[in-house]
Computed example of a mutant assay.
Amino acid sequence: MNVLIVEDEPNYSDTLEMFIDELGYHVTGVAQDGNKAKKLFQNNRPDIVLMDINIKGNITGIELAKEFQSIQPTPIIFITSFDDKETFEKAKETAPHAYLIKPFDPGRLERCMELALQRAHSEDDKVFDEESNAVLAKDSFFVKERNRLVKVNINDIFWVEVDDKYTILHVEEKKYVLRQSLKYLCEKLDPSVFVQTHRSHIVNAAKIEDIDLQLSVVRINGNEIPLGKSYKDDLIKRLQML
């Protein structure tokens, strides 16, 4: 997960950067003023922004948040020393995902970041409950592994398979175990790219290396994926359209 920090107090920006690093996330940049923050936001398009309200320059964090949202809707968490009602009401106009008062509690910040992604990319209020561990953004999954969220780009997925009660995302040299059903993923993934080859397998058509019609398998990244009879004709039609 890529995080942009907008904070003009070195002590707090260093603390935030260290904390984000410990969580296993990536800090795309640290900005002390609005101009630098806008450049970093436009160039890197972070997944989440940690924003101080009172920053250097002629623009406030609240005004900067409005600009960010006009460029690309992005979860924003305000971290500020201001706890007065007037500042809070102004901040509310930008629909932030959290509003934390300094000194902040690292545990609470971690929970706020997790909830921010959930609310930004899912209509389900219980995305990261005991029954689930992933949320689908526009072009990626955020998969919860231990105490951090791992971003998996959809285009990097080779295939998806069901194993008992779990669904497994296969990417190059790694796999992610989800607690979502295959039906749920079928509804979320682009059907023009992902096609079902078996009752327990969905493949990224762009990753297919070859199809062995005699053995009824699809080869992807050196692996053989089963090709069921009832799915064979549909797969061939899809490939002809690509």
Rank of each mutant, 00 (worst) to 15 (best):
F142M: 03
I76N: 01
K151E: 10
S216V: 14
S216W: 09
E145S: 02
R179G: 06
V127K: 11
G107P: 00
T80Y: 03
L109F: 00
L50V: 13
T60N: 03
I5D: 00
G29Q: 04
S181L: 05
K232M: 12
L50S: 09
I168N: 03
M113W: 06
P73R: 13
P73H: 11
V177W: 02
L169H: 07
D83G: 05
E187S: 13
L117M: 05
R219L: 02
V49S: 00
M113K: 08
L117T: 01
E161S: 13
V127P: 05
F128G: 01
K39S: 11
S122H: 09
K66P: 08
A95V: 12
D156T: 08
T87S: 07
T80I: 06
D84H: 01
R111I: 10
N58R: 13
M241R: 00
V127E: 12
S81G: 14
S200A: 10
G24C: 08
F41C: 06
A37C: 00
I5S: 02
A98D: 15
K102Q: 11
N43G: 08
E86V: 10
N133G: 06
V218H: 02
A95Y: 15
G107L: 00
K175Y: 03
L185G: 04
A120R: 07
V162A: 15
S70F: 10
R148W: 10
V162K: 11
V3I: 05
F104S: 06
N204V: 11
D33T: 07
D163V: 14
V3Q: 01
S13R: 02
K207W: 06
E7D: 03
W159K: 09
S216R: 14
K85R: 13
K174V: 13
S70I: 09
A31G: 03
D52Q: 10
N58I: 14
S200W: 05
I5G: 01
V49C: 05
K144A: 04
K38R: 08
D163K: 14
P103R: 05
D33H: 09
N155D: 15
Y231H: 11
A91P: 08
D190G: 00
K174S: 13
F78G: 08
L100R: 08
S140A: 13
Q32W: 04
L227A: 07
E161R: 12
D233E: 13
F78Y: 14
D47R: 04
L189H: 11
V217I: 14
Q72Y: 12
R238A: 01
M51R: 07
D212Y: 04
Q240R: 03
D190A: 09
I55P: 07
K188H: 07
V27K: 02
P73T: 12
Y166R: 04
D33W: 02
A98Y: 14
F104Y: 12
K92Y: 11
V203R: 07
D47A: 11
L136G: 01
N58L: 14
I53F: 01
E17N: 04
A31I: 10
I76P: 00
I77N: 12
P75M: 07
K90H: 13
F41D: 03
D83I: 04
L149K: 04
K174R: 12
F68Y: 11
E22F: 02
P75T: 12
A116R: 03
E89W: 09
D124Q: 07
F142W: 05
V217A: 02
P75C: 09
M241V: 00
N11R: 01
